[in-house]
Design a protein around this nucleic acid. Sequence first.
DNA 1: CTGAAAGCGCTAACAC
DNA 2: GTGTTAGCGCTTTCAG
Lengths: 351, 351
Amino acid sequence: MARKPAMKAAAGGGRPPTLRDVADKAGVSMMTVSNVINDRTARVSTTTRTRILATIEALGYRPQRAGRSLRMQREYAIGLTIVRPDRRFLNDPYLTEVAAGMSNGLADRGYGLMINGVPDIEGLRRLVARTSSVDAVAVVASGPRPHREAVYDLLARLHQPLAVIQDDVAGLADTCCYLQDDEAGAGMITEAVIAAGGRSLLFVAPDTIWPAIERRERGVRAAARRKAKVARIHCDEADLESAIASILLAFDRHGVPDAVIGANDQIGIAAIHAATRRGVPVPDRLMVTGFNDFAFRQFSAPLISSVASPAYAIGETVARGLIDRIEGERFNVPRQTLPVSLAPGATIRSP
Amino acid sequence: MARKPAMKAAAGGGRPPTLRDVADKAGVSMMTVSNVINDRTARVSTTTRTRILATIEALGYRPQRAGRSLRMQREYAIGLTIVRPDRRFLNDPYLTEVAAGMSNGLADRGYGLMINGVPDIEGLRRLVARTSSVDAVAVVASGPRPHREAVYDLLARLHQPLAVIQDDVAGLADTCCYLQDDEAGAGMITEAVIAAGGRSLLFVAPDTIWPAIERRERGVRAAARRKAKVARIHCDEADLESAIASILLAFDRHGVPDAVIGANDQIGIAAIHAATRRGVPVPDRLMVTGFNDFAFRQFSAPLISSVASPAYAIGETVARGLIDRIEGERFNVPRQTLPVSLAPGATIRSP
DNA sequence: CTGAAAGCGCTAACAC
DNA sequence: GTGTTAGCGCTTTCAG
């Protein structure tokens, strides 16, 4: 009945049960058990199947990934790598939405999500050198464009599929970019501000450089062309007080603009605080906008006008795209862009 | 020179290089390459080592986790499983800090972090049934105590080490609990409120039940004993407007208390908004406190008084604890509690 | 419908 | 310091 029962059965104490243990106990071959596990129902009689299922239950058997991985040459895991100076690399509502979307999208198809944060390309190099433990990588990177490109390049050279999130790059092997239409979103909200009479706009960007922010600035400038003037400053988005100080400094130096276009909601909220401290009424004297429509946007008073980002959907899309690529042929498009929409608030005047 | 060069070398086109490819190219045995990779420097001469390193570089070789995993009976990965109804399961600053701390702590020791979110124990059952792909699991679960205990029980039966985060349970095999001292933190901030004259306190908890919240309520009640009266309501923490409405309702029904003790910062901020809408001055008429000291706490005006949680440190501690357990003997304590500290703000009056 | 054999990449143990 | 052997758990292939 059993294949090599003597030694195997004896060892049964500590180690977890294997396919062979199940096969032996159920009195069938390992292949039959494997067929049951993988739902190849055509190849197994219902009676056999039932018996094997019971044995699996009784033994508490769970397939071990390593064996299958080795045989199938597949890790059944996908990496999400975040390149960002802050070691608390998930402290950003955008990233957590992407991560949750990916995790759920992958789990639906039997894949796991391995999350890593590295401060820069050196950290990435160290991470990558260790071991190849995923079938594909999704990356979201901050920093100046050359730094980001070095990051993507390093990852693309690994000979595994790459998903670049929130950045648009070309010429990389086996790579697909997943974006949201930041330019259009920034354009839409800027147009709303201009329609309400905004003529001098202050675009406030974070210190940490993100590609999405660059696109938003382009969208703002395109919408403003000939209709409004755009200035730009930077601030530390992680520290509200410091952000407020930067915005107040700009007010002092160049006067209070008609509108502050925040590169994200955090910054927009800082602008509201800055205005409040100066006694500048929002939106009557100063309009303010944010970006991303995070949950904590509700903390602002008045409610900040923003743009809703499909971050969770991007995560899901990346998951699907990467698995399809791994299990199928190749990426069929080099780039996917998801739409954004206005998230109305009370910090833009009615036209 | 090579072992089975004919077929192997020929196949070199598509598949990634293996240990054997490196060994063949460098003219040494696979074991020698393995020794180089694993820094067993004593066993390899410097010249050989250098040559092999060069070959690895030239071939772009990276060890494949599946082979090592199979041989070593170890996945080199640890799971973080979040049990929570919201499919956006990472939308909580506390969890993202824990996750980042774990990820970094694990990466330092060559382990990966696999993140999963499930809505309830049924989802967990499905997740767990699939495949065993981690060496240990850390879990953070919401829901009533019996539900949570069922979750821990299911996980503990998997015969792998378990870390229970932010909950205190006993009697589980191979399990360690990682907590922060919520009771002490809640006690400290409640005492500050009482010292400032607070006599009627309203504890506002979220709808979703978390063990940490239960401990905070106990801490509040212990500190209030005989010195202040404590009432409790619940609200939807994810929707600020709805939270504000719940708090206003309580004000209307039972009058405005001396202080609102928010179970977390989000809720405390909702209380500030509620007070503002009623024209109740904070902190002069109503004191307000939060919990966790999240970054967005700064969005509140006035700055909410809170308690700082060591969430990132908990993540790191869990990572270390689990790896030590996997690589060493067993957990040497059943529970670890990290201290919290006051995060001063402007919503408690000076005594 | 079921079974036997071979091998995926890696390393512990033991030669030499 | 270096090489050889064996086998971890699983599935593809081919034979019944």
